[in-house]
């Protein structure tokens, strides 16, 4: 319990974001008592699946000291190509094949990013800005630009697999798809890599000081390469889940979402300069963004204000701890 009240606890991003979430829920349930209900919760969890998987990938990149803005293009490329392949050649294939193929494509595109970054030493923002445009353009030009609405049956069925479904006392229906388990598995695997393997600690180390990492013999190239392949794989997974849940493969989807995801991760305390980031913070950041998106209407704010609200949250949520740190540093000197 002592830790709960320590000073560092209160100035952590996680705490701030959690407080904002709670405040938001309180205000929303005052303006609409029905807000605090199972349907709202399952809506939020469902809304957080794709965003959450993206965010975990982005967090790993930020910890390593890089940034990736190409992951949405990777996701849509992997998702659309996989769906097109399945629909054209083997529509009867099971959903896990679709997942596997999409993740492999994602990994391959991530590997291209990784080669440019780890072997040619190019700045990560520039590489991924470039590949964002290339992957998307390539997809629309050479693979296809038409909406696929007749998904392979098994992919469609996957989104209907429910962990549970139920009806409320007031008659509203709610359910949580098994796709949510994908997010849980991604979080567990990422936690294990980051905190239980030397590879994960090396990711933190190169984010802290790449020069020091080289000096003590960490294989910086391999570590960076892994990071971009990993985020690519997660993007492929998020993409295919997105298509499956929206029952359509739209090649114009997803791209444009990059900054919201990065915002969620930064809100959760990951630093753009690298070395810092936690899964708890990232998931809280995602939760906050999903809540803001889904529930501003409930408290009577027009949805066009969404981006303003998210912007304010970023400024306050990341600015406040930074300002406190600066003041503490000024006092110390």
């Amino acid at each position: 319990m002592k830790k709960l009240f320590s000073k560092s606890f209160w100035i952590r991003n996680e705490t701030l974001v959690a407080i904002v979430i709670i405040a938001f829920i309180i205000i929303a349930s005052i303006s609409d008592p029905r807000f605090l209900s199972m349907p709202t919760l399952t809506d939020l969890l469902r809304g957080g699946i794709v965003l959450g998987i993206f965010a975990v990938g982005v967090m790993v990149v930020l910890i390593s000291g890089g940034i990736d803005v190409s992951f949405t293009a990777v996701a849509v490329f992997a998702m659309y190509t996989t769906t097109l392949f399945l629909v054209t050649f083997v529509p009867e294939l099971s959903w896990y094949w679709a997942f596997g193929i999409s993740m492999l494509i994602g990994a391959a595109l991530g590997a291209i990013n990784g080669i440019f970054i780890a072997w040619f030493g190019l700045p990560t923002l520039i590489v991924t800005l470039g590949t964002l445009s290339i992957y998307r353009g390539f997809l629309l030009t050479f693979v296809g630009s038409k909406l696929i609405s007749n998904l392979p049956p098994d992919m469609r069925d996957f989104s209907r697999l429910m962990m549970f479904r139920n009806t409320n006392a007031d008659g509203s229906f709610y359910s949580l798809p098994w796709a949510f388990a994908a997010l849980v598995i991604v979080v567990i695997i990422t936690w294990f890599i980051l905190y239980r393997t030397t590879l994960g600690r090396s990711i933190f180390a190169i984010g802290g000081s790449i020069e020091s990492a080289r000096r003590i013999g960490i294989n910086v190239r391999a570590t960076q390469f892994f990071v971009y392949v990993y985020v690519g794989t997660l993007a492929g997974l998020a993409g295919i889940i997105y298509a499956s849940m929206s029952r359509v493969a739209n090649p114009f989807d997803l791209v444009g979402l990059e900054l919201s995801v990065i915002a969620a991760v930064v809100l959760g305390g990951a630093r753009l300069i690298g070395g810092y980031g936690t899964l708890t913070g990232t998931l809280l950041g995602v939760a906050l963004i999903v809540i803001v998106r889904n529930s501003l209407i409930v408290i009577g704010i027009p949805s066009t204000w969404q981006s303003v609200a998210i912007g304010v949250l970023i400024l306050v949520g990341t600015g406040l701890p930074a300002w406190q740190a600066k003041r503490a540093a000024a006092r110390a000197s």
């Binding site: 905190y195 030397t198 802290g208 990492a213």
Partner: peptide
């Protein structure tokens, strides 16, 4: 040093690498 890691990890990181430990 690694500014973002703990004292313990900073001290022991290279020994872990030297022993080729995959798990932390």
């Amino acid at each position: 040093l690694f500014p973002n890691l703990s004292v313990a990890e900073n001290i022991a990181f290279s020994t872990q690498l030297g022993k080729n430990r995959r798990l932390f």
